[in-house]
Design a protein around this nucleic acid. Sequence first.
DNA 1: TACGCGTCTTGATTTCGATCAAACAACGCA
DNA 2: TGCGTTGTTTGATCGAAATCAAGACGCGTA
Lengths: 227, 227
Amino acid sequence: MNRLMKPGARERETLLNSGFLASLGVESVAALMEIAIIGNLPARQMLFREGEPADMLHCVLSGYIRLYKLDPDGREADVSLYGPGDLIGASVVLDGGRYAATAQAAEPALLARFDLRRVRDIASRRADLALALVNIVSAQLAASFTSLADDRLHTAPQRVSRYLLDHCPADGKATSFRLPYQKSLLAGKLGLAPEALSRAFSLLRNHGVHVRGRLVHIGDPEALKRV
Amino acid sequence: MNRLMKPGARERETLLNSGFLASLGVESVAALMEIAIIGNLPARQMLFREGEPADMLHCVLSGYIRLYKLDPDGREADVSLYGPGDLIGASVVLDGGRYAATAQAAEPALLARFDLRRVRDIASRRADLALALVNIVSAQLAASFTSLADDRLHTAPQRVSRYLLDHCPADGKATSFRLPYQKSLLAGKLGLAPEALSRAFSLLRNHGVHVRGRLVHIGDPEALKRV
DNA sequence: TACGCGTCTTGATTTCGATCAAACAACGCA
DNA sequence: TGCGTTGTTTGATCGAAATCAAGACGCGTA
């Protein structure tokens, strides 16, 4: 990661709005701001690798970070995807352990980094920080449970339609929106090969879903729920 | 859950050895002991259901608790399995949220329960408790990542052999041991139908694995790693 | 030791998604 | 505007595991 620096006005702003800092009291925010380091990560660059000693906590300010595990043959399985405002769950290792997976920039990203030991020090004095970490990590655990169950219970088109429904207004009206990242990244997040995602989209055409590039139009959200 | 009671000598002993309390200072342990309630749960009984407001933290003293999610048709997908000494991760919801999955006793179980609000109160005064919760939940997050990646990268026989290797001494010598629970439960934990587990075991016979009932004999751990 | 129930195994079939291969589209860049 | 790279779609094939349906085994009980 290059161009390390203290947070400027823009970065402070983004950081304050992130899910991480938003729930903290002013003293904890100040203490974290004090130790925050901002850096950007070019596309495809690794942030950390599975098995490395965990020494930093990372928060995404912009861009997307893909978290994945490797098998012996080098095949990759995505386990998480973090966007603006997200704290990278796998880097919350306060007890001096190791990273559980590899983190890579899916596109150019701006990150805030915090020395883990110092975070631990602050958390041991300021309960709001420790409790916020508990909440964030358990929310991520719940999300991981959802992925796991989805993988085992739903077909590719079902997973895709659930994703689309999660990302559009709940009012049952037709909508359009832009996918926040490339389809191959979405495929990984959903545990699919890119081809399978493509086929799922083409099947969903019969259910009122139209895709061109990153633009998605959903004709009938109610119908989509019944896929 | 019936037969609620204050912890007796036996339960205190088990609780003190659990991963949860083991890392805490004496004051936090005392405070938790003060609010602990012991109860047993008959086989197949639910401890909590997905979506219910989370008001209790649970720690398994004996037996096994299966955590799963349901799909609309009533099919179940196991997301976690907790045994003696484990804190049930899905019940660590300090911010008044809801349980992320359903917990059911896979066999008669003895549990310690803690009122979540009171745990939160203690954690906001005693940093060691809050930090221990962060560590426990993030370890479970890492385990969940591993399951997710395993599902996507490995075949049934591979997942089974990894499980076996995780549960036998690492010294490369032949061993025998007893499965801690029924095979159908193990199948669920590994994300397999019971039939698939059975077929995996029969395939692993060619690799020196012999199973009779819950008794497993591993002839050559090294060979197993290469499956 | 025999009985009966629940668990596990085996077989046959089917479905889903991975993989390989190739055509196609989009985008950045000269 | 044209080219090359990268990302996406489509087609064909293959393999893994779910499912359905019997049958065998193991275990506790009488």
